[in-house]
């Protein structure tokens, strides 16, 4: 049980499922992660329908925890002259993602057949 956490020093970096999904989307999007692109990414790659509102809310929480940082982009005409808020993973966030993914991998290891049979 404690084995899995042994290798990672520092406090527990627990992530909720939605938080993990959002961080993964931010990671995939590189420098272009903001409400619209994150939502599109999630809708494209997962079975969820999400609102940008929920995304911003979660990102706000992740920012407080120091997992992501935000910077404000340039206004565009399609947005009616409004600016974007672009997000980027911080080292702490990267570690949390790494840890959650490692947990998931370990838990699903050897379950390939069983999962497909579900």
């Amino acid at each position: 049980m404690t084995m899995s956490l042994k290798s990672i020093p520092g406090p527990s970096l627990y992530l909720g499922e939605f938080e993990l999904l959002i961080l993964l989307a931010v990671l995939r999007l590189g420098g272009d992660a903001y409400g619209v692109t994150i939502r599109d990414e999630l809708e494209k790659e997962t079975s969820r329908e999400v609102t940008v509102g929920a995304i911003y809310k979660t990102l706000g929480r992740l920012q407080e925890k120091g997992y992501v940082s935000a910077r404000v982009g340039d206004p565009t005409p399609q947005r009616g002259g409004r600016r974007k808020k672009l997000y980027r993973l911080e080292p702490l966030g990267s570690r949390a993602v790494k840890q959650s993914c490692a947990d998931l991998r370990r838990l699903t290891r050897g379950l390939g057949r069983a999962l497909e049979a579900l």
Partner: peptide, 20 residues
């Protein structure tokens, strides 16, 4: 109704998606 901190970005995102 959207909290001030995210207002501009949320509306901007909706506008952008609408235009798209």
């Amino acid at each position: 109704l959207v909290p001030r901190a995210e207002r501009e970005f949320v509306i901007g995102d909706l506008e952008e998606t609408f235009a798209a």
